[in-house]
């Protein structure tokens, strides 16, 4: 499901901030820009961007989803790498969209976009060849393995970066391969199963007493965080980009 891309990747990039960062998690998008700029990237943020189309794609409304994807294609023009601080939105670009455009005449445009889309950690480690991160982050961090990283190099890349930070302790927890239960519309249409999955995930994470929960996808963190907050468990969440940015400051 993951495409081979030319490396080293260009540092002249377009940022796809994702709708969740647009609506809720502005600091994640901001941290992403700061991290990319630290790496010497020139960040272009196409103003007309909205969403990758994943909500409708997963819900089965491919007509609606294609409409949104087509809008995205018109916004992210050119051949700069498209950097996405979300495993699932990136996978929408390089996998999901290919599925729903299989029989569409504009499939080549989707393929072109797929071929230059990178999830953030994958871009840093495999696109730019950066495997060591400067600064300090003296905390215990549990890293949630977001499902859309399966079959991509992003999970390994994130671990490489985190483990290279001075002072950090990445703590493993039980049943890490299990989904948190978000799944977009799934969390709404199957609320009881979703809840049970989320609570199981939270139990496993809290068991190892981390100071922070980290992930590469704000969808997962919206869901896991929502349960943590509803149950007043008080565990703060950070996107990988925020840890990298904070390490630079530390």
């Amino acid at each position: 499901m993951h495409l081979e891309r030319a490396t080293p990747a260009s540092r002249d990039i377009q940022l796809m901030a994702t709708c969740l960062c647009d609506a809720f998690f502005d600091d994640v998008a901001q941290a992403t820009v700061e991290v990319l700029e630290h790496l010497g990237c020139t960040v272009e943020f196409p103003e007309d961007q909205t969403c990758c189309g994943q909500p409708a794609f997963n819900a089965g409304d491919w007509n609606a989803s294609r409409k949104v994807v087509r809008h995205g294609l018109s916004v992210f023009k050119g051949d700069k790498p498209v950097i996405v601080p979300s495993g699932s939105c990136a996978a929408m670009n390089f996998h999901g969209a290919l599925l729903e455009f299989e029989k569409e005449p504009d499939l080549p445009a989707v393929q072109q976009m797929a071929g230059r889309t990178w999830e953030l950690a994958d871009y840093i480690v495999n696109g730019l060849g950066v495997t060591e991160w400067p600064g300090k982050f003296p905390h215990r961090v549990a890293l949630h393995r977001s499902c859309h990283l399966r079959g991509t190099p992003s999970g390994e890349a994130a671990l490489t970066l985190l483990n290279s930070i001075e002072g950090i302790e990445v703590v493993p927890f039980g049943e890490a391969e299990q989904c948190c239960g978000f799944g977009g519309a799934f969390s709404v249409s199957f609320p009881n199963v979703s809840k049970a999955m989320g609570q199981l995930k939270v139990e496993h994470i809290l068991e190892v007493q981390p100071e922070y929960l980290a992930a590469l996808d704000m969808g997962c963190l919206l869901h896991i965080g929502g349960i943590i907050d509803k149950e007043n468990k008080g565990l703060p969440r950070l996107h990988l980009a925020q840890i990298l940015r904070d390490a630079l400051k530390g």
Binding site: C147, H148, C179, F182, G183, F186, S187, F190, V193, M197
Partner: peptide, 8 residues
């Protein structure tokens, strides 16, 4: 529809 599409 009964899947979070987690891919496991």
């Amino acid at each position: 529809k009964a899947s979070s599409l987690c891919g496991a």
